[in-house]
Design a protein around this nucleic acid. Structure first.
Lengths: 110, 110
DNA sequence: TATTCAAATAACCATATGGTTATATTATAA
DNA sequence: TTATAATATAACCATATGGTTATTTGAATA
C-alpha cells in the first residue's frame, strides 16, 4: 500500500456524486446516459466523473454498441476499505523525532 | 449515513499528508510542532491539515499548556470504514429511470 | 510585566476541481 | 453514404485546495 495511491482512491470518492455513482454500480452496471438524468448534471460532467473513477481503478468500462457500460471494480473497492484499516506502520517517524529530541512528552507538560 | 457527510470524511483523507497524519495518530497523539519536522512543511500548513481533519470529526484536540495535542477519533474513523462497506440503497434511482423508460438494457444492445 | 514558544489566522499564489457549452469521435440506423 | 445517438474531449469559469510568509493569540517563563 502506498499512501499516495490510497489517497488517490479516497479523492476519487471524496465527491458526493461519485460516491452515489459507486453505490449505484454496486447494484448494476450503468451507462453514462442513465446517470445523466439521475444526477441532473450534463453528459460531459458525468463522463468526467467516470474518468476519475476509472483512473483510480475503482470502475471498469466496457463498450456495448454505442453505449459504454461502467461497472464497479469490486476487488479494488474492497481492497481500499481494507487498506484503510491497515495503514502502514509509521513508528520510524515517531522514533526519528524522539531521537532528534524534538518530540514532546505529553505526560510531562510541566 | 449521508453521502455528503461520508464524502466529506473521504475528502479529509484524500491528501497523502493527512492520511499519514492519521496513520501517526493511530500510534499516539501528536502536537503540531512534532508533525512539522516529520512532513517538512510549514507550521501553518500542518495547522490547516489538522483543522480539516478536526472539521470532518476524524480527530480530537486537547490543549496541554502551550501545546495542542491531536488524537485520532477512533469511533468516527472506524465508522467511516464501515459506512463505506454499507453504502445506502439507491434502488429507487434505478427504478425511477426504468419507470421513465430511459434505462438501457445492456442485455439487449440490439 | 515582558519575553518567548506553540498554534491559529490572514492574505496571498499556483494548481486542481466540478460544472458549463461547443465540438469531435465512435457506432448504429436510415 | 448520411444522419443520428452516445460518449469523449476541449475550452472555459468560479471556487476549492495546499502551500507559502506575516501576524495574532494563548500560555508559560524570565
Amino acid at each position: 500500500m502506498e499512501f499516495d495511491v490510497l489517497a488517490g482512491k479516497m479523492k476519487a470518492l471524496s465527491d458526493p456524486t461519485r460516491l452515489k455513482i459507486i453505490a449505484l454500480l454496486k447494484m448494476r452496471s450503468c451507462c453514462v446516459c442513465e446517470l445523466v438524468p439521475i444526477f441532473g448534471i450534463s453528459q460531459p460532467a458525468v463522463s468526467k466523473h467516470m474518468f476519475r473513477l476509472k483512473s483510480a481503478g475503482l470502475v471498469k468500462e466496457e463498450r456495448q454498441g454505442k453505449w459504454v457500460f461502467y461497472s464497479l471494480n469490486e476487488d479494488v473497492f474492497q481492497e481500499m476499505g481494507f487498506d484503510l484499516t491497515r495503514l502502514p506502520d509509521l513508528s520510524h517517524e515517531i522514533k526519528s523525532i524522539e531521537e532528534q529530541g524534538i518530540s514532546v512528552q505529553c505526560e510531562i507538560p510541566e
